[in-house]
Amino acid sequence: MQQIPCPWCGPRDDWEFHYGAEAHVARPETPSDKSDEDWMGYLYLRSNTKGPFRERWMHAAGCRRWFNVIRNTVSHEVFAVYKIGETPPPLPGEAPAAPDTTER
């Protein structure tokens, strides 16, 4: 059984969680300005990364809170978890990222 460390509840079995796909997909600040192509990109286009990937998970059977996970999509190894709004830790082998200032 794989365990995912909830930032609040600690390690829990993976069936307690819902998957929320790629993290840090920012909703357009001014939606009315966006073209259909922009909207398609926001709604549907995802990076489909092979390897370490920033993604959202929700602790559905526990505290029901969304958070972010850096997970290797090949091996399922979890490198880090961080709360919504926190600065994303660097991906393995990557320099530290700039602070996440996305409004949520």
Partner: peptide, 10 residues
């Protein structure tokens, strides 16, 4: 306290 599933019941 904890929230989880008891025999598949939340």
């Amino acid at each position: 306290c904890a929230q989880s599933m008891l025999a598949h019941a939340g």
